[in-house]
């Protein structure tokens, strides 16, 4: 499945990456090269094979329902959360006005 310019633009839009015409052209070639190469996977007979879920046998552990048990994964640290914000505003993150 070769991809065209329009597809490149659609993917870039889905991925929220602005691209110029020149970049789109360059990417069209590169992506087709890579995707053409990975398509060899289609040759593999995977009848009856389940997609891998856990690379090492292990089961999901669940956490106790305790607030702020570990400060590293708890709340009450607004200063830390906002410390690197490009546009902190009165305890909020500021973003350009969104029209819903």
């Amino acid at each position: 499945m070769a991809i065209d310019q329009a597809t490149v633009r659609k993917i870039a839009s889905l991925a929220r990456i602005a691209i110029s015409d020149a970049e789109a052209t360059a990417m069209e070639g590169e992506l087709n090269g890579i995707l053409g190469w990975v398509e060899q996977l289609g040759e593999v007979d995977v009848t009856g094979v389940e997609p891998m879920t856990a690379v090492i046998p292990n089961t999901l552990r669940l956490r106790d329902d305790v607030v702020d048990a570990d400060p590293l994964t708890g709340g009450n640290r607004r200063d830390d959360v906002l410390a690197n914000a490009p546009e902190p505003q009165h305890g909020f993150f500021g973003v350009p006005k969104v029209i819903e």
């Binding site: 996977l41 593999v44 995977v46 094979v49 389940e50 997609p51 891998m52 690379v55």
Partner: peptide, 8 residues
């Protein structure tokens, strides 16, 4: 498909 191949 890739995750199936990965299982293999």
């Amino acid at each position: 498909q890739a995750q199936k191949v990965r299982a293999l």
